[in-house]
């Protein structure tokens, strides 16, 4: 059984702390792969000055656990850390962190990619951007839905 840590939180996170936690007392893993997602200034053709992230309390955590469980069934993972922020965020703020450890890199690369792809289409988060034209909800992209196709067995 993998050691899984999942957090949906307002406050920021420190990647060096997360990385240290993944390495601590770890004699079996040869690979750590992580992804961090940031707020960028240009999105869907508009200049963004910030965003707010809404979620569905309860369901979000449940959905994230289900996605991580699925990844653990597909690949031999030992540790998984997933942090997703909610609330008000500014340009270049960290939004999401997904890290997995495994004995070998192939499993770690694939599982990290898989978790991010499913998080984008299955976990109930919604972004609202502040742009020069006012606030707007970010539209879901069909490419995010299509990204799931590559994981079908």
């Amino acid at each position: 059984m993998a050691e899984v840590y999942i957090s949906v939180q307002k406050h920021d996170f420190d990647i060096s702390h997360e990385y240290a936690t993944l390495r601590e007392d770890n004699r079996s893993d040869g690979a750590i792969v992580f992804f961090s997602g940031l707020v960028r200034e240009m999105n869907q053709g508009s200049k963004v000055s910030g965003l707010s992230l809404e979620h569905y309390p309860g369901m979000t955590e449940k959905a994230l656990h289900a996605i991580v469980d699925e990844a653990c069934q597909r690949w031999p993972l030992n540790r998984v850390r997933l942090i997703h922020r909610i609330g008000q965020l500014a340009i270049s703020d960290q939004i999401v962190f997904v890290a997995v450890t495994s004995s070998h890199r192939e499993a770690a690369f694939s599982a990290c990619h898989f978790i991010m792809d499913f998080l984008k289409s299955r976990a109930p988060f919604w972004k609202k951007e502040v742009t020069s034209d006012g606030e707007r909800w970010v539209e879901a992209l069909s490419k995010d839905q299509q990204a799931l196709n590559k994981w079908q067995a």
Binding site: M59, A63, A66, H84, L119, K120, R122, P124, W126, K127
Partner: peptide, 29 residues
């Protein structure tokens, strides 16, 4: 649609006491 905090399909069943929610396609990550 979600039933009891799990994404549902059109034919998912809803019983007394179930939590039902509707929301737009998600945009996290």
């Amino acid at each position: 649609a979600a039933v009891n905090q799990t994404l549902a399909t059109e034919d998912s069943e809803i019983n007394e006491g179930d939590e039902v929610a509707f929301f737009p396609p998600v945009t996290g990550g």
